[in-house]
Design a binder for these strands. Sequence first.
DNA 1: CTGAAAGCGCTTACAG
DNA 2: CTGAAAGCGCTTACAG
Lengths: 339, 339
Amino acid sequence: MAQKVKLSTIAEALGLSTATVSLALRDSPLVAEVTRERIKAEAIASGYIYNRRAASLRTSKSGIVGVCVHDIMNPFFGEILIAIERELDRNRQTFILCNHYDDLSKQRSFIDTMLQLGADGLILSPAIGTPASDLELAESNELPVVLIARTVEGWDAGSFRGDDSVGMAMAVRHLIGEGHKRIAFIGGTELTSTGRLREAGYLRALEEAGIEFRPEWRIAGPRSRHSGFDAAPKFLAIDERPTAVCCFSDLVALGLMYGLSRAGLRPGIDIAVTGYDDIDEAAIATPPLTTVANGQKEVGRRAASALLARLGGSAFATSEELISPELKVRLSSAFDWSA
Amino acid sequence: MAQKVKLSTIAEALGLSTATVSLALRDSPLVAEVTRERIKAEAIASGYIYNRRAASLRTSKSGIVGVCVHDIMNPFFGEILIAIERELDRNRQTFILCNHYDDLSKQRSFIDTMLQLGADGLILSPAIGTPASDLELAESNELPVVLIARTVEGWDAGSFRGDDSVGMAMAVRHLIGEGHKRIAFIGGTELTSTGRLREAGYLRALEEAGIEFRPEWRIAGPRSRHSGFDAAPKFLAIDERPTAVCCFSDLVALGLMYGLSRAGLRPGIDIAVTGYDDIDEAAIATPPLTTVANGQKEVGRRAASALLARLGGSAFATSEELISPELKVRLSSAFDWSA
DNA sequence: CTGAAAGCGCTTACAG
DNA sequence: CTGAAAGCGCTTACAG
């Protein structure tokens, strides 16, 4: 590799100006067909690499979209991310991924990095405790923000998520319909909008059925497979143990089922369990997990295309979009006793 | 927000030059203490945002490291990524993550993007069929590459991975030690170095023990939880069904165990199962999964720090580093028959 | 259809 | 210790 090839290298080699070369490489109709071909051939032959930093400095468009969530390893986010990726890829946007692990300062430093890199937009599942001002800082520096999964108080521009409260109520009504009268709710916390909304749905469904909620039924906290596993002994220690558990997420439910099995109980037979999200694994688990499909793909797709639309100049069509949940009944909650 | 604040805005406000402001903000000792403080205060007060594109154009350092793997949702990579993230964070490098899904063209376009953004380095788990020339293209354009998990034929600069062949042999020897004489090997393919090496370890361990390998014991292909699940019926249909299975990965093993349970068999009791990687879930699975710890954290940490060292000017200390595997015996393969 | 020139916002020798 | 000036590699009016 000799010297670095740049527009001017190509221009000189061909006896043209950099303006012409620049236009030709971006397929401008201003450049004559023949010239364009010659230029492109030379670009390839010389191993030219487009310098996006230089272009971006000039145009103040970077082609970068930042995406930041609590944990990309969580299959729930994974499915959202795949949908986002697909949508952005089609529009030739590069996306930069980041975990904030619900750490506000990590999230801030990510927003800062995006600002410094001149990102075109940001898709965020906001960390616990995110103040609206953090988002306003981005917006006021021309970095449009779209929220997914969670909401932020005092901020109501673009936001896409499943209807958590309605979805959780569906799961609980199903358990009640199966004859359960003591139903625990494991996982999630009041610190996130998701946690609050799902708890609200749980309480609403109990109330509708005239079941009086008991505080010991609520084991708040767990949001991972591991913490679901750890919650099993706590659940088993509840006085007048509930016969059913609705979990904050599939991951919590799968971990809990591991924990129950470890204790010699058969999930789905001895204790009904439901999850939330309908991640891929839910359908093949032992037993297959009853859960609520949360529209991850739809959330990701809509969030990305709303952002792209806004980059294209239009405002957000709606401030908040709710994706409708769907109950998936499987054996973990509906063992056929007659069989 | 009024106009965009840049170095010259601060310089003018304070009656200084941009050179001084630039140096002060980067804590240069060339600038007087008092001046530095004044400048920093003004930068904060005015909401200044550092423009990394401009800086990078000038210095040709971007502070960006690209990381591209087959699938970030795979917990095996997840654990590597966390280690990489930690290491890069400490060195204030931004990292850009990407899935290539074993699609060569996706991987190429990622490398291209990194080149265009002027990334400082690349950490890659190469897609199936990656030619050495793709990596050389990066290197020849001053983008250092470090490989993780897999190798590429004809390319032997920095590369970090677990010792797959040795590790798999450990798992198989353990099964043989438990008295098994017919052992299947499920998952992985000859297309990746990982697949070839683990298969080699499997065959070697059989041979050492004087067990003659039968082709029907090998069910190649599955690498996900789902495909492990789907492999169960195929396994069950093998003539003179093996009493044990070693799987290509924990994910495959966990899926297979789901599939076996579905068929009414008890993994760990009716059929011994081992995995590979020792992901977090292995220890809490039902039954807990015997597996081989593959040193993900170590792979990630060493790969990142080797890359950082190279960015700092030094060459790679070694061309290839193998992390030693460790067998973790759990109930999936060692049910106590005497109990 | 093509070219000359300015400018995006930094940093880096070089002077003083 | 501080400043004036050049330059990183593009794109964009503007001229012709």
